[in-house]
Design a protein around this nucleic acid. Structure first.
Lengths: 185, 185
DNA sequence: GGTGTCATGTAAACAGTTACATGATTTT
DNA sequence: AAAATCATGTAACTGTTTACATGACACC
């Protein structure tokens, strides 16, 4: 589970509260955890127990108190150690491919409709990914290299959606009936 | 949970036993479930309870008995219904991107090493994906369209890894130090 | 007056992985 | 002699999502 390490990374940039970590995760295009309460607060308790973070409670009037977490030297060391561990292969969970694999009972029109829907879905995701790349408000910018790396990471995600759109186009080309049988138009 | 539907799809091609469904899942490039006992046998019990599949026990000597499952008309109808439901966006779990995001403590050499390792990992996956596309022994081939669709699905996966390799190359180009400071060679 | 934000946390449900168990047969 | 394959199943654990709970304040 590298969620704990992702949180360490976030805290390495600046100390923030659990509630805000949650939002950073939810807004991130590449930190793929949903960022729900259960996961985040549990992770923070674990990190705290391991001495990788500390927290300080800030009382505010007109709003609930917040626990602001900071990374420790031990946490920084652990973050560096993890950052250099052997990379894992990416996991692609494309439910649409599974669906498409079993459309032999569908008509050409139904298949075309499915592809249209998938394309719309992807176009939406692509737009969001681009927006997050260009306007995401959480991006540490400690060195020129870090800035470049974050840009490249977002390009990877954008490119993944772009690849999906390109692929949809080839699918349309490949499965369109050679003899014209279109309903609408 | 669409694992149940994926299993329905497999059974729509031909009746097979749970043990073999497990292997089909493990060998599949795009049906992303690990195919462990717990998941498969539990899914089959559910499908059976819902009347979507039936089973027949075959006793064999020199080997354990097997329960061969078949899809029912109800199961076929459910498979078609599901195949035409609104497609979901793909999920990309690229742990490497998270790792890369927090490498600001690493030296240029360490980063280059990481990239090398990731590339090797991806090259391995790409090879496997291509092999499964070209030699995978489970591919229903009921109609020319189904054959084409299965090929396209595998092309999607292969393309995803290919995209990753292309991206690695651009990362290398973007972050290589402008002034030459290389250790080895 | 209902909905949303801020901020923490818990409970329950679902999904997924790893490991255990059996017992004959085949392979290394 | 040890390990893997065939074939089913269960147990224990980890990971993830959804929902519940509180209470002040702001917005429409």
């Amino acid at each position: 589970m590298s969620l704990n390490h992702a949180i360490l990374g976030i805290l390495s940039y600046k100390p923030i509260a659990g509630y805000d970590i949650k939002k950073v995760l939810q807004d991130s295009a590449f930190m793929y955890w949903s960022g729900n309460n259960n996961q985040v607060y549990k992770a923070l308790v674990e990190l705290h127990a391991g001495g990788l973070v500390t927290n300080k409670v800030f009382h505010q009037d007109g709003a609930p108190s917040k626990k602001v977490y900071s990374i420790t030297d031990q946490g920084l060391a652990e973050l560096k150690r993890w950052a250099l561990t052997a990379p894992e292969a990416p996991e692609f969970k494309k439910a649409f491919l599974v669906q498409l694999a079993w459309t032999w009972q569908a008509s050409p029109g139904e298949m075309a409709g499915l592809l249209d829907q998938y394309q719309q879905e992807i176009e939406g995701q692509l737009l969001m990914a681009k927006w997050k790349r260009d306007n995401g408000h959480f991006s540490p910018d400690r060195t020129p290299r870090e800035r470049a790396v974050w840009r490249l990471i977002h390009d990877n995600i954008v490119g993944s959606y772009q690849h999906e759109l390109d692929w949809i186009a080839t699918v349309r080309g490949a499965i369109e009936p050679t003899n014209g049988e279109d309903a609408s138009l």
